[in-house]
Design a protein around this nucleic acid. Sequence first.
DNA 1: TACGATACGGAGGGCCCCGCCATTTAGCAA
DNA 2: TTGCTAAATGGCGGGGCCCTCCGTATCGTA
Lengths: 186, 186
Amino acid sequence: MTVQRADARRNYARILAVAEEEVAAHGADASLEQIARTAGVGSATVRRHFPGRRALLEAVFSERIEALCARAAELAGAADARAALLDWLGALTTYAASARGMADALVQDGMDDPEHVNACSAKLTGAADPLLRHATRAGAVAPGVTTADLITLVTGIVLVTEHHPDPAAEAHRLLGLTMEGVSPRR
Amino acid sequence: MTVQRADARRNYARILAVAEEEVAAHGADASLEQIARTAGVGSATVRRHFPGRRALLEAVFSERIEALCARAAELAGAADARAALLDWLGALTTYAASARGMADALVQDGMDDPEHVNACSAKLTGAADPLLRHATRAGAVAPGVTTADLITLVTGIVLVTEHHPDPAAEAHRLLGLTMEGVSPRR
DNA sequence: TACGATACGGAGGGCCCCGCCATTTAGCAA
DNA sequence: TTGCTAAATGGCGGGGCCCTCCGTATCGTA
């Protein structure tokens, strides 16, 4: 595996493009064979470039992940640490809710393979960590809350609202409840 | 369908028993064929008694659902409405977390078939409604929160903690955060 | 006991995931 | 240009699962 051949790179891009559409249409359960068929390649080629459905989903959502990391960087220096955190979590929710299957990609993340912590949640966690730290230092976040907790909660909310008539709106509403507290101690 | 034949009832019970084990072991994705094989019946018989995986899951979890409804009734007249609500949500979390697949059964609930609102969430919602009303009247719950919201949130939390080393503990921790508020307004 | 209605289960089709291996093809060197 | 080799491909077969159909076995009753 010196540099990867040109045709291999072509196929990679081709498959990825098809996969994006297919995942958008059918969620995380999109058929790998269907993707191969649409891309005009053999099913073996798909699995060669993306070993396992997980790898494919990671690749498909990597752009969005990057965008979210960038957004986190933007918000890192904001004056209102709490607002910045909520803003970012809202953005995460929007992204995840709009992309069928992204939540599934996140939930199975970091647990499947023993070592190989999935790149998705790892990147997100790293990017959002400063936001949480600032907010915590400002006393705006309950003690003991980790970045992973935040992402996990959002993931759960998105997962469970996936079949809702208006997923994004419902997800944001539930996110608001979770942040403010459903039943805050007086 | 006059009264259902004796052997049919026998098979029903047999399949249900096997299904409970199988679902406990493999979650909501348990193979219907595997269940049939283990039960010693044809796969057609399984789907005759339980048309679709949903029906099977409903049957499998119905006992737990009943137990939760009973618990809600017990707590309905408690002095501390907020504590009662939190108690019940904790119980729901415990049950759902201990039964692999119960959360999945709940999440797809009420959305799949257009009319046929699934019996699972319907029963739970009905049973928990009084608890929420009491708590709301006591001002212990944020305005606009519905019983369905509560169950949805718990479902999401359980779903997303399913692959955690200690699912129940993690689920309860996140539930606590959600109730108290991750980032409550000062 | 004999006869319907009821329930059963095996077979077959469709779809999917996976691994294998013979064949093609890109990229480099003579 | 022409070979040559390693990389890349994709068709094929195996194993599963889900689902439907239909001939057959069984129950419950007359």
